[in-house]
């Protein structure tokens, strides 16, 4: 009785784990199968023959490669600009003494309470009047306006002791110098979490890029995948390869940065 309970206790988490990663494993195996294979026994997906020609095919398909590079470009630029503007604002709120500080901080909090989906229509209208629809600027700029980063970084900057800042000022350091050489290096863990979180958010963002891109050379991967898959109906080997291509960078990133990703989620829990 005791023994069977112990076995159950160890088996259950294992079985659930397998169920959770199974679709991803299956995707990777399907992407390694030669095209045009009629497979009726599902276990055959996992058995040889394997081939990398699907990947060659996808990389040689200029369109998919372009979408991949777009996603990469938009993700990296969004992340870098987000880090710069949010850390600058957080530094001002945490370390500079100015009027209406409380008011500004509360003003920044408002944005957290309004769900982005509720303002998509007016945002589209604004982007249209600014003539940034169907452009990289339109893909990037609205993504950097989230105040969550400011709030997380502010609480991090608050823990830098006042004395450190004051003695640096005595030595004639400019505020920007203090921001750049003292406060930022101390906040590296928070910056890393925000960076990874922003990048994943941008890499996976679907609705906004789907709404504002019309030219297929501007598509990001999440927008391109449905287009590619609906034009391709022979079997699902090539569509699954596109899925794999857009997931593998994230899966690799996940193994390297699991800690930071997990921390980033705990931050977003604070937000609630």
């Amino acid at each position: 009785m005791r023994k069977s309970r112990a076995v159950m206790g160890n088996l259950l988490p294992f079985i659930i784990a397998i169920i959770f990663i199974f679709p991803i494993i299956w995707m990777l195996f399907v992407s390694l199968k030669p095209q045009g294979l009629g497979i009726s026994n599902p276990l055959k997906w996992f058995l040889p023959p394997y081939t990398f020609t699907n990947y060659v095919h996808i990389i040689a398909d200029f369109q998919v490669l372009r979408w991949l590079l777009n996603s990469l470009f938009v993700g990296i630029v969004t992340t870098i600009i987000t880090l710069i503007v949010t850390s600058l604002a957080a530094f001002a709120i945490s370390k500079i003494n100015f009027q209406y500080k409380k008011f500004i901080f509360i003003f920044f909090l408002i944005g957290l309470m309004v769900p982005g989906e509720a303002t998509l229509i007016p945002l589209y209208q604004i982007a249209q009047s600014m003539h940034i629809l169907d452009s990289y600027i339109g893909l990037i700029v609205p993504g950097i306006a989230s105040p969550l980063g400011v709030i997380v970084l502010k609480s991090f900057f608050d823990s830098v002791p006042k004395e450190v800042i004051e003695s640096a000022r005595m030595d004639g350091c400019s505020l920007f110098r203090i921001y750049y050489s003292i406060v930022l290096p101390l906040a590296k863990p928070a910056l890393a979490s925000i960076a990874i979180f922003t990048f994943i958010g941008s890499w996976n963002n679907f609705l906004w890029p789907y709404m504002i891109t019309f030219s297929d050379h501007l598509y990001t991967l999440p927008v391109g995948i449905p287009v590619f898959n609906s034009n391709y109906s022979q079997d699902y080997i090539l569509p699954m390869t596109v899925n794999a291509v857009s997931s593998i960078p994230l899966i690799i990133a996940f193994f390297f940065f699991e800690k930071q990703i997990v921390k980033g989620i705990s931050f977003s829990g604070i937000k609630g």
């Binding site: 784990a17 990663i21 991803i24 995707m27 890499w203 679907f206 991967l221 995948i225 994230l250 899966i251």
Partner: peptide, 13 residues
């Protein structure tokens, strides 16, 4: 890792 992994995939995938 296994329980969390699907979360990082894109909605299209």
């Amino acid at each position: 890792g296994a329980y969390f992994l699907p979360t990082i995939l894109s909605v299209s995938v």
